[in-house]
Write a protein that binds this DNA or RNA. Structure first.
Lengths: 111, 111
DNA sequence: TTTGAATATACGGATATACATATATTCAAA
DNA sequence: TTTGAATATATGTATATCCGTATATTCAAA
């Protein structure tokens, strides 16, 4: 992973916010991100696939849900950049995280 | 300046290395970057213009040379990201800086 | 005021990217 | 074993990006 690759991934709003929300929450599935970002399922899924292919995220399937989390072996400079970016974007992240909290039925809590 | 804009700027090799070299050297003109990156004049100039338009760089003209430097009012999260990236890319920057040092005739030193 | 060096920009073509829509896949419950 | 929910992928289209080439601009020296 070189900086150009990382920055290309983070240069798109959907991918940036998905990454930062996942970083904040530890793990999120596609339907949670659809809710948090108010975006379509194919759009979210496509961008998550790209983040996984670049090595930024990994996924695991649990029943019918696929959970995405940060790749556990990210280099420190990558996690540092994510942390710095997250701190600078708290204002944009907060309402998204709020939407997660008020979701009718999140997979983990009501499956 | 939001992170998507910054990351889009840094997602291109020419713009990334130009920015990091300018950060390392304080100030560089187009012809120095042409030498350091072994790239054409229009290519360097075009990418520097984009970095200036995004607010990452500013320029000043001195005689026939135009010098670019980091914009003096960059937010801290931006300079933090540049510093982190630079530290992670020392291996790629070193040979470029070396080419600068061995340039026949750098504007500042032989005008 | 002409010439040349340094830089900027315009233009056209090739490639990449993002999106909406439609369809496929995977899984669990009925 | 059919159905529906969650997710993934394929396809076509529109737009953005990047590059090389050519040309314009700016400045200083002759």
């Amino acid at each position: 992973m070189n900086p150009e690759q990382l920055f290309k991934c983070l240069a798109d709003e959907t991918r940036l916010l998905s990454t930062l929300l996942i970083q904040a929450e530890g793990e999120l599935c596609v339907c949670e991100l659809m809710e948090a970002l108010e975006d379509s399922q194919p759009k979210i899924s496509r961008h998550l696939a790209q983040l996984r292919n670049c090595g930024i995220l990994t996924d695991r399937r649990d029943r019918q849900w696929v959970y995405y989390r940060l790749h556990p072996q990210l280099p420190k400079w990558v996690t540092d950049i994510l942390a710095t970016t997250s701190a600078a974007q708290q204002g944009r992240l907060k309402p998204c995280l709020q939407k997660l909290k008020t979701m009718d039925c999140r997979p983990e809590s009501c499956a």
